[in-house]
Design a protein around this nucleic acid. Structure first.
Lengths: 168, 168
DNA sequence: CGACAATTGTTGTCGTCAACAACAAACTTC
DNA sequence: GAAGTTTGTTGTTGACGACAACAATTGTCG
């Protein structure tokens, strides 16, 4: 079993009300995370929540969420892609992509064009206003990225991208 | 607009059917991610999905998900915590924690004990079988962590934990 | 050629999760 | 004691991942 690693910070920390049978630790200061501190998944989850919230807030004025941004970016860089290709590349299920494209198409950012060579599939394109809008989205996304840099540091952000490059 | 950075890899790559008005890029090889490669959020999201899937699979035999594990770990390390304290510490909404605890209590892993000093709050404790079970969960979680290490490398995993330590 | 398998887009359901809103009970503050 | 706050609870909404099933179309292979 190895030795137990029960408490992460051994700071005495002035307890609020260390009652015996009562609920302790009103604030989150003296609460130890125990084994959680050694788990990459926990840190990654918390960071991902923070980063998405900042993205959503920064792109709030244009009402674009991270997934929508990723879809638009890939279509913009690879016009004519099929829905399957986009879904595969982004790790989105094709069933989910249907709804995403429905929304983007209603907003006149994306067009589904019936393919001539394969009548099952749709060739995805940005509309002219979609191209203009995407340019603005990219500027806002770059601003969001600067928030990330300010939060964890320039070098750390680049190291992070390098470490996780295999998952993109 | 700066110069467009449309394709990430400039490899010729034998196209499947580079039709003009047709859907291209059946497989996900030649599809460029464009601006997404520079976004930490995208890489983090993909990594987080992978890491959670591995966690769920590795802890599949005991049917414990990441959030449940984090709740059990914190309660185990800080017996008597209130629901508010756990929710705050883990960044979970207290409304969500209610359902999580309902499930854990039905499985006899956790007990809600009415606090004497504050009759609103509950003091959270692991049951004896809960303690035993958590020990097993921790062993499985450590195994999952070794999967992470095998995936991104030992040094990279530690660097990652260090970079994201501020979010725990 | 023609039957059978595979693919593409679509619809639907299910479960997880974050974000709110509202509420009763209990506590705090003044 | 009245007003405001906190705690736990219930409910709703929406994004999201995971499946399953289906029609239309295409590919395969005997």
């Amino acid at each position: 079993m190895t030795a137990s690693v029960a408490r992460a910070d051994a700071r005495p920390s002035p307890r609020k009300r260390a009652g015996n049978g009562a609920a302790r630790e009103i604030d989150a200061e003296g609460v130890g995370l125990d084994a959680l501190v050694g788990h990459a998944g926990y840190a990654v989850r918390r960071f991902q929540i923070w980063i998405f919230q900042d993205f959503i807030k920064t792109l709030g004025e244009v009402d674009i969420r991270p997934t929508q941004y990723s879809v638009l970016t890939v279509i913009g860089a690879n016009p004519g892609l099929s829905q399957m290709a986009v879904a595969k590349r982004l790790g989105i299920e094709r069933a989910r992509l249907v709804h995403l494209l429905d929304g983007l198409e209603q907003r006149r950012l994306v067009k589904r064009i019936k393919s001539k060579t394969d009548r099952r599939s749709h060739a995805l394109h940005l509309t002219p206003p979609g191209e203009t809008a995407l340019a603005k989205f990219k500027r806002l996304a770059a601003e969001h990225e600067r928030h990330v840099e300010a939060k964890i540091g320039k070098a750390n952000r680049e190291r992070l991208l390098q470490i996780l490059a295999g998952f993109t």
